[in-house]
Design a protein around this nucleic acid. Structure first.
Length: 328
DNA sequence: TAGGCGTGGAC
DNA sequence: TGTCCAAGCCT
């Protein structure tokens, strides 16, 4: 691939890039890092308001490092992949302790939550290093332009194509193109600045690159959540620090199972996780179980920092209490 | 290294 | 309704 194609892409990006809130923060390590962690497996539309809210509450990495863990997890609630939030806290505290973000890809890579992609992205975008971030967009665009079916062949090709001194801009240009034009399905090749340089477009089968991943079957599971009322309050607990929804506020309940529980549920809320689906059976109980927890005012349920599963389950329980006949 | 780990939007 | 997919990381 010649340098002309790269220049065309950079020009297209300069003229058409979306005005994302973190783009103004290029070369700011804190904002770049925060946005990149939030964007891991998460859409721009979902991240944008959360990014702004985090920056309002914690304008610097020092402020974030000094914040109580429960408050950060509460602001993260609904964003998913909660290990990211736990790593975010650990990373902020490590950076605050050492005074600043490390400035190289290899040192960034050692921080919690910074894998191969994010370390390269922060190094390239915030520090101007010639690192090569390969996310799913870069992988797809490079696979199509070079006509590579095998994903494992993409990073080497990408390294030959990124223009020296412009890696941060080029990575963002590739990601913007991947999100808007070089989409997984029905790519808009007629609007693509790289169409004349693209092997997959020349073959007429852009969607065949890269080869699709093999999909796995998603099992179905069941859970019981106890719905414990005291006047206008409900009993909440905090989940164990590790594992699914680790460290997050939740309704109390026993371990989930593969089989349907024999209970008389007030409501059943169905939820889809990445690797299984769940029926959560909401069962009224009289008294809180042994162990720590707190009474949360129903009116302030939104402030409890519940992950989406429990937020929607609580909404279903409240709706069932109002309209018992619809709960069947 | 393959599987665990959330959620919401597009189709 | 279900399926795919998104600026991945960790073990």
């Amino acid at each position: 691939m010649d340098a002309t194609a790269a220049a065309k892409l950079l020009d297209h990006y300069a003229a058409n890039a979306r005005d994302l809130p973190w783009r103004l923060a290029t070369r700011d390590p804190y904002r770049t890092w925060l946005s990149e962690v939030m964007l891991q497996q998460t859409t721009v539309a979902t991240v944008t308001p959360r990014f702004r809210r985090f920056l309002e509450r914690w304008p610097t990495v020092q402020a974030l490092a000094a914040a109580p863990e429960e408050e950060i997890l509460g602001e993260w609630a609904g964003l998913g992949y909660y290990a990211r939030a736990r790593n975010l806290i650990a990373c902020a505290r490590a950076v605050a302790e050492r005074g600043r973000f490390p400035a190289t890809e290899s040192e960034l890579r050692k921080l919690p939550g910074l894998g191969a992609y994010t370390a390269a992205a922060v190094a390239a975008i915030a520090f101007g290093e010639d690192a090569v971030p390969v996310d799913t967009n870069v992988e797809r665009v490079v696979a199509r332009v070079f006509g590579l079916a095998k994903r494992a062949d993409v990073p080497a090709a990408a390294r030959t194509w990124f223009p020296a001194g412009r890696h941060g801009d080029f990575a963002q240009a590739l990601m913007d193109l991947g999100a808007s034009i070089c989409r997984p399905k029905r790519p808009a090749c007629d609007r693509c600045p790289l169409a004349a340089d693209c092997r997959a477009a020349a073959l007429g089968t852009p969607e065949a690159f890269p080869a699709p991943k093999v999909k796995k079957e998603r099992p179905h599971r069941h859970g019981v959540a106890w719905w414990i009322r005291r006047g206008d309050e409900v009993w909440l607990v905090r989940r164990p620090a590790e594992g699914l929804l680790g460290g997050m506020a939740s309704l109390p309940g026993p371990e989930w199972t593969d089989d349907r529980p024999q209970v008389n549920a007030l409501a059943i809320h169905r939820h889809g996780f990445t690797h299984f689906s769940l029926d959560l059976h909401l069962v009224p109980q009289g008294d809180p179980p042994a162990g720590e927890g707190w009474w949360q005012p129903i009116a302030d349920l939104a402030a409890a920092g519940l992950p989406t599963l429990y937020r929607k389950a609580a909404e279903a329980a409240l709706a069932a209490e109002r309209e018992p006949k619809l709960a069947a």
